[in-house]
Design a binder for these strands. Structure first.
Length: 282
DNA sequence: ATCCAGGAAAACG
DNA sequence: CGTTTTCATGGA
């Protein structure tokens, strides 16, 4: 089985990376093997102390997907600005942001609104099972994530089985509007952060939070700082104590928080967000 | 039962 | 323009 040896200056934790909530389609066995579908392939991977052992993809793909080319120690130096983020970093050593396929990431975060992680995972699994292509691996069935036209082709009906609730028309309408997945992806990729954000928010069901997640997790726009209920709480308690919690997050509050984070943590504030989120209490 | 979860659209002033 | 209401689902 191919492997990648992780030298001492290349910090990485597979469990932190796949378990922190940035991805929804990886599963871990008791023995520490992770199984996931990325693009058209099933990947099986585990980590012992200093090696990544895997099958289902080439070494270059694994390295790229897990952002092993990023100088994480340097990134952490730049975001490590106070004792609170410092504690979060210490608790989640080796956490890296992966490079998610953008379309799957977009649908995932449309499905994530006002939901908890187990519910989101179930919805994404339903969509893949209903519309994706089956792949057999070790005698089990896995499913690719469907492209936009596969979802929109048969109309709204197939989505009803996926338990999306009021998010169903969001997924359907967005699948209809993204007719050319690759071209759409390149359009977003070319744009700078703020422009890409506005472009993504034209999609039905994509608001500020989902747009920031997509930009951070799929397009490596590290200045994105997604603000969900957890991050809002953390920021209010530890950084911006003047913010009034009781009303739900308004658009203005969202901008206040992300602009503060951009200044405080710097150009890699998205990494700070993920460490704060992963280290949350709850 | 009641509240909450990786929120966003639509309706309302 | 900013603010409030509504929207399904499952877990605690």
């Amino acid at each position: 089985m191919p492997k990648i040896s992780l030298s001492a200056d290349l910090p990485f934790s597979l469990d932190q990376t796949l378990g922190c909530g940035q991805v929804f389609r990886w599963e871990r066995t008791e023995e520490g093997w992770w199984y996931g579908v990325v693009g058209g392939r099933v990947i099986k991977i585990r980590q012992d102390e200093s090696n990544l052992i895997f099958e289902g993809a080439k070494t270059a793909f694994i390295s790229h997907y897990f952002s092993l080319d990023l100088d994480l120690e340097q990134v952490i130096k730049t975001i490590d600005q106070d004792q609170f983020i410092h504690a979060a970093i210490s608790r989640c050593t080796g956490l890296r942001l992966v490079r998610q396929p953008p379309w799957e990431c977009t649908v995932s975060y449309i499905c994530s609104t006002n939901s908890n992680i187990p519910t989101i995972r179930r919805r994404i699994a339903f969509i893949a099972e209903r519309f994706g292509k089956v792949i057999e691996f070790e005698g089990k069935k896995y499913y690719t994530f469907p492209d936009p036209s596969s979802i929109s082709y048969e109309g709204n009906d197939g989505l009803t089985e996926c338990m999306l609730g009021y998010r169903q028309p969001y997924v359907f309408r967005t699948s209809c509007s993204v007719t050319d997945e690759k071209q759409w992806e390149e359009t977003i990729r070319r744009l700078p952060y703020e422009d890409a954000r506005k472009e993504l928010m034209k999609l039905h069901g994509v608001g500020p939070k989902a747009a920031d997640c997509i930009l951070l997790f799929s397009f490596q726009k590290y200045e994105a700082f997604p603000v969900d209920v957890w991050i809002r709480r953390i920021m209010q308690q530890n950084y911006i104590k003047t913010l009034d919690l009781k009303a739900g997050l308004t658009n203005r509050d969202y901008d206040t928080i992300r602009r503060f984070a951009r200044k405080h943590f710097g150009e890699y504030c998205g990494y700070a967000q993920e460490y704060l989120y992963a280290a949350r209490e709850g």
